[in-house]
Simulated assay, not measured.
Amino acid sequence: MLAVLWEVKRLRGLVVRASHLHWTFRDELKGEPCLEEDRPFATERELRRRANAIRNAD
């Protein structure tokens, strides 16, 4: 069971790092035709909420 818990922690860390990368490159990739989304990017308030949720989850 301990091995499963460590694997969950490891995978969660991977997802958190991937999320940070996404927000880091968001502005650089905005406007790329192949990456345009149907909806606009989140507002600054939403970005802060998401960042706080990630920080508080640790």
Score class of each variant (00 low, 15 high):
1 M>S: 14
3 A>E: 14
3 A>N: 07
4 V>P: 01
5 L>D: 07
6 W>N: 06
6 W>I: 05
7 E>P: 01
8 V>S: 02
8 V>P: 00
9 K>E: 13
9 K>G: 12
10 R>S: 11
10 R>A: 11
12 R>F: 09
12 R>L: 08
13 G>A: 04
13 G>Y: 00
13 G>S: 07
14 L>N: 13
15 V>I: 08
16 V>L: 01
16 V>R: 00
16 V>K: 01
17 R>I: 03
18 A>V: 03
18 A>P: 04
19 S>E: 06
19 S>L: 10
19 S>F: 07
21 L>Y: 11
22 H>K: 09
23 W>E: 02
23 W>Y: 11
24 T>L: 10
25 F>I: 09
26 R>Y: 02
26 R>K: 15
28 E>V: 08
28 E>K: 08
29 L>C: 11
29 L>A: 08
30 K>S: 14
30 K>V: 04
31 G>I: 03
31 G>F: 00
31 G>C: 04
31 G>Q: 01
32 E>L: 15
33 P>T: 03
33 P>C: 01
34 C>K: 12
34 C>G: 06
36 E>I: 12
37 E>N: 05
38 D>N: 13
38 D>Q: 12
40 P>M: 03
41 F>Q: 02
42 A>V: 12
42 A>N: 07
42 A>Q: 11
43 T>S: 14
44 E>V: 09
45 R>V: 02
45 R>Q: 08
45 R>P: 01
45 R>D: 04
45 R>Y: 03
48 R>C: 02
49 R>E: 07
50 R>Q: 08
50 R>N: 07
52 N>E: 15
52 N>G: 04
52 N>L: 08
53 A>N: 09
53 A>C: 09
54 I>C: 00
55 R>K: 10
55 R>D: 08
57 A>L: 15
